[in-house]
Amino acid sequence: MTSNNHTLRRDLQGLAADLKWSAVELVRIADRLIQASDEPDAQALHRMIAMFQREESKLSSIVTEIEAGRLVQKDEASV
């Protein structure tokens, strides 16, 4: 794996982890909203959580493609 691909993979893994952590935190907030009888805002957060989880899954798939060598980042000098 090239240095550029290694950096890209690491950056994407970090973004995926950030999305996953954010979704976990949003679940906690949504639970508190439900306990406070604020169902509409809790539902809005659940929609955001679902979106974050989909995007985290997409990033994880891209990382897998990079690891397998099927996706490579072009060197900026060759663009």
Rank of each mutant, 00 (worst) to 15 (best):
A44W: 03
S60H: 01
M48V: 11
E25D: 01
R70P: 09
L15N: 03
D38S: 08
R32A: 10
V24M: 12
E65V: 01
E56G: 00
A17V: 05
T64Y: 07
D18G: 00
D75P: 14
S60G: 09
A16M: 05
R10F: 08
L15T: 03
K74Q: 14
M48G: 07
E25F: 06
Q43N: 06
E39G: 11
L33D: 13
R32Q: 15
E76M: 09
D75H: 06
L26C: 04
A68D: 02
T2Q: 10
M48S: 11
E56T: 00
L8E: 04
L45I: 04
M48A: 06
E39Q: 09
D11V: 10
R9W: 10
S37D: 14
Q43M: 05
S57C: 13
R70K: 15
I34K: 14
D18P: 00
T64F: 08
H46R: 05
D31C: 10
E55I: 00
E76G: 11
Q43W: 07
V24R: 13
F52A: 10
L8C: 06
I66S: 02
R32I: 09
S37M: 13
M48F: 10
S37K: 15
E56F: 00
S61M: 13
F52P: 01
R10S: 09
I34P: 04
T7G: 05
M48R: 07
A68E: 03
